[in-house]
């Protein structure tokens, strides 16, 4: 009888080849790639500065404080939705319903205040509850039924749109019919030529809060770990479902605050507003260097991404180009951003 195989030889193939490592270290491109890999917000920052420089050269009016403040105001709504979207995408999910959730919350706030005569603060609280409920619905479907976030939010997107029309009857509520508190977010604070609305300030405050939570708390690390490798996170003792649910709840709450900003910005609440918000928010997140595969990215990248889109739109329109070219430019930006992300991710191997 033949002897059984005694002792398998240790695998020797996986040791890194020193020559390859050396070459990778030497190439300037490779070094740039590792910097981008470590700091995903660097590339959108470069793009933003370049965009401002280029469009500023084409038309100097872009650089006027009044114009830059206008861009900020235009960015406030999509920037806030994009903040919520960043949280979801960091967990390797995607939220197609977040814009619709925001509109639903805004209609609940505006309609209860204008038709039922509910005080402004209470209406806002109701809106917050609606936002949390939309997040809870998405979160429960994702964690309990284990459905892919794409499918869940595609479904709830339609649900929220239908609920919005059902509740509002399809009618727009004018700002004049609402308590002053609801349109306060559109009120400007003027310093010289710079006009910053309260809505913009709220957006910045939300970025600071979420940025802090993501980078300085255990919860933030868990969000990254879950998005990075769900199974590894579970084995490390992280309650993955609880983290996911908390992220969807946070996104719903941010959507509700965004509803308030939106009412102030447009001085109205319209059930037809924000049709493009879902995709615009994903655009801002992706341009901001957050990976759609989860676990990589920062809220500051997203803010830069939203500003880039704002500067492109503003710059192209000041250059006298038709709106369709703005859309074209944003499309090209998205594809470029994802290509760069793919290239950066190759550092892993």
């Amino acid at each position: 009888m033949s002897t059984p195989p005694s002792g398998t030889v240790a695998t020797a193939a996986s040791a890194p080849d020193p020559a390859t490592e050396f070459l990778a270290r030497q190439s300037r491109l490779g070094r740039a790639r590792s910097v981008l890999h470590r700091h995903p917000a660097v590339s959108p920052a470069v793009v933003l500065v370049a965009a401002i420089a280029v469009f500023g050269t084409i038309n100097e009016r872009l650089l006027l404080p009044a114009n830059l403040s206008l861009i900020l105001q235009q960015v406030a709504v999509v920037g806030t939705v994009a903040l919520a979207q960043t949280l979801i995408i960091l967990t390797a999910g995607i939220d197609l319903s977040i814009g619709a959730a925001m509109v639903l919350a805004s209609m609940v706030i505006a309609t209860t205040a204008s038709e039922l005569g509910v005080p402004g603060a209470l209406a806002l609280l109701l809106g917050l509850l609606v936002g949390l409920a939309t997040g809870a619905l998405n979160g429960v479907l994702v964690t309990r039924l284990k459905l892919p976030p794409f499918i869940v939010t595609l479904g709830t997107f339609n649900v929220f749109v239908a609920l919005t029309l059902l509740y509002s009857g399809g009618a727009t509520v004018r700002g004049a019919d609402m308590p002053g508190l609801l349109t306060l977010t559109g009120a400007p604070i003027t310093i010289g030529d710079v006009r910053i609305t309260i809505g913009v300030l709220i957006m910045f405050a939300l970025y600071v809060v979420v940025g802090y939570a993501l980078t300085r708390t255990a919860w933030g690390r868990h969000v990254y770990a879950v998005g990075d490798d769900k199974e590894a996170a579970r084995l490390a003792g992280i309650k993955v479902n609880r983290v996911l649910l908390s992220v969807y709840l946070a996104a719903g709450a941010i959507a509700a605050v965004c509803a308030w900003i939106q009412i102030g910005r447009t001085n109205a609440a319209s059930p037809n507003a924000g049709v493009d918000l879902n995709l615009d928010s994903i655009t801002a997140v992706v341009i901001g260097g957050t990976s759609l595969f989860g676990g990589r990215g920062t809220v500051w990248g997203t803010l830069l991404g939203a500003l880039i889109v704002g500067v492109f739109r503003g710059g192209l329109s000041l250059a006298g180009l038709d709106v369709l070219y703005q859309t074209l430019a944003v499309g090209i930006l998205v594809i470029a951003a994802v290509s760069i992300d793919q290239w950066i991710r190759k550092v892993r191997n």
Partner: peptide, 10 residues
């Protein structure tokens, strides 16, 4: 674990 259970990005 065999699968290491470390989070690569952290």
């Amino acid at each position: 674990y065999q699968t290491l259970a470390v989070s690569p990005a952290l």
